[in-house]
Structure formats: structure tokens, C-alpha cells
């Protein structure tokens, strides 16, 4: 049985970076985080619309360092093209969680309804196990997992968050 780790969110910085997708760039980024005494809580990498450039979203515990050091130290890396600490900016933050639980019969139907109420869905099921997925903000993923925990979690996969600044406070189709 795997119990989700409780994360102290007070020192967490959310940083988005556009990097050159050279070999070893992930190692440079994670190496800088380690040697400055920070700790990575979440890290996602994916392609951007521009060939040769990747987008990273890092959730980093600044440790004993000043909070702005996370962004400043990573900006020193030659292959980091753009970097922003979006912790205090209006932003969209999403994380994907996939959970395998052992739930059957009547309880399974009820759980599936509750998961759908969260905006999640059932991905797969057999006689003994069900796999649900949910994407959402950190807090809603955490409450989703809170719902799953009493059922007996067999496995969890979490993507770590991806982030993008929102449309600067404009109430629009983002629906923030």
C-alpha cells in the first residue's frame, strides 16, 4: 500500500522555463537544483510549438535559500532561454493523477460517480481493480486522492504539475 506523501507547500516555487532541448539539459537543470540545496517536488518536460525548444514546469522547494534564488540560479544556465517564477502570478496549474484502487460491486459504482463528480473518469477496470484518472490543480488532486485512500490504493502515478500564466486576470474562456 502506498501512502501519498504530504507536501509542505510553504516553500514551494513554481517555475516555468523554455529550454534548448539539447542532450543533458535536464541533468543541468536538476544538477543546479540539487547543488543549490533546493529540492524538486515536481518536474515536467514537454515539447513547445518551436522545434528545438522544450518547456519545463518545475515545482521546487527553495530549502534554506531565498525564494527568488530558484529562478535566478536556473537562469544562469546557458541553455535556459526564458524562465519565470509564476508562484505568485495568476496561472493555470494542472496535474494528472492516475490511481489504481481495489474497489468492487456496489462501492465501485458509487466511487465512480464521485470521481465523475470531481471531473475525473474511469479508465479501465477488471473484477478486482479500477483505474481512475483526474487532472486538476494540486489541491483537487489531493482531495481526489483523499477520496481514494480509504478504498485501498494499489498504485498512483502523478505527472507533476504543468503551469501557464493565465490571461492576466481577464475573465475569459479560461474560466478561472
Amino acid at each position: 500500500m502506498i501512502t501519498p506523501e504530504v507536501v509542505d507547500t510553504r516553500r514551494l516555487r513554481v517555475v516555468t522555463a523554455i529550454v534548448q532541448d539539447h542532450p543533458g539539459v535536464l541533468s543541468r537543470v536538476s544538477g543546479m537544483v540539487r547543488r543549490r540545496g533546493f529540492n524538486i517536488q515536481g518536474l515536467t518536460v514537454g515539447p513547445t510549438g518551436v522545434p528545438g525548444r522544450s518547456r519545463m514546469t518545475l515545482t521546487v522547494d527553495a530549502g534554506h535559500a531565498e525564494a527568488d534564488q530558484v529562478e535566478k540560479q536556473l537562469d544562469r544556465l546557458i541553455e535556459v532561454i526564458e524562465i519565470r517564477d509564476v508562484t505568485d502570478s495568476p496561472k493555470l496549474l494542472r496535474e494528472l493523477a492516475i490511481v489504481k484502487v481495489s474497489v468492487t460491486g456496489e462501492q465501485r459504482e458509487q466511487t465512480t460517480r464521485e470521481v465523475q463528480g470531481f471531473g475525473g473518469r474511469l479508465l479501465a477496470a477488471n473484477e478486482a481493480l479500477v483505474i481512475y484518472e483526474l487532472s486538476g490543480e494540486f489541491e483537487s488532486v489531493e482531495s481526489f486522492l483523499g477520496l481514494m485512500r480509504p478504498l485501498g490504493i494499489v498504485d498512483i502515478a502523478r505527472s507533476g504539475p504543468v503551469a501557464m500564466t493565465s490571461l492576466a486576470g481577464l475573465a475569459g474562456p479560461e474560466g478561472e
Binding site: A65, E66, D68, Q69, K72, Q73, D75, R76
Partner: peptide, 11 residues
């Protein structure tokens, strides 16, 4: 010259 020195040790 290095922006990361600002506030690294003293703000």
C-alpha cells in the same frame, strides 16, 4: 554583473 548574486547572501 550576476543577477543571481542579488539577495543570494544579503538582500
Amino acid at each position: 554583473i550576476d543577477r543571481s548574486e542579488m539577495g543570494k547572501n544579503v538582500r
